[in-house]
């Protein structure tokens, strides 16, 4: 009789130990993909040198996508925004010059408590941004 009941928590234990992290501090530097791989699909290069216009367009695009801007810094070239829709989607977009003719746009996002590491949402964001800029963003080899 006792054996029959003991199996339940044991099963739960085994499942959990197999699937869970053992130390949540490892999350500090954790990424499922490599630094270079992540950069590749979170980054696009645009043929423009107009930083102000790029930043304004990024803010506009985020607003079109129902984000509310948390903070923007023109000097460093960063915009952070959050979308609340039954979930919290937080995104940070940064821009920096690449060579003399291009601007690199880099985005990263978290969905509630998970990082967004699937390429599709980033593609969609860059598509919307490209339309707004009337420019085609090029994939870069980080």
């Amino acid at each position: 009789m006792m054996k029959k009941y003991a199996i339940v928590p044991l099963m739960a234990l085994v499942f959990c130990l197999a699937g869970c992290q053992t130390d949540s501090r490892t999350q500090v530097l954790d990424t499922s993909k490599s630094q270079v791989q992540l950069r590749a699909y979170q980054t696009r290069a645009y043929e423009t040198t107009d930083r102000d216009k790029m930043l304004r367009t990024i803010i506009g695009t985020l607003q079109d996508l129902a984000f509310v801007v948390d903070k923007a810094d023109a000097t460093l070239g960063t915009v952070s925004a959050t979308k609340l829709n039954g979930y919290a989607l937080r995104i940070t977009v940064t821009i920096r010059p690449r060579g003399t003719t291009q601007i690199l746009v880099r985005a990263n996002a978290q969905y509630n408590i998970t990082p967004v590491e699937d390429p599709t949402p980033y593609q969609q964001f860059f598509e919307a941004l490209s339309k707004a800029m009337f420019l085609e963003g090029q994939q870069v080899d980080a």
Partner: peptide
């Protein structure tokens, strides 16, 4: 950003 942080 690589580490998945959002800039505050």
């Amino acid at each position: 950003q690589d580490l998945g942080f959002s800039i505050d």
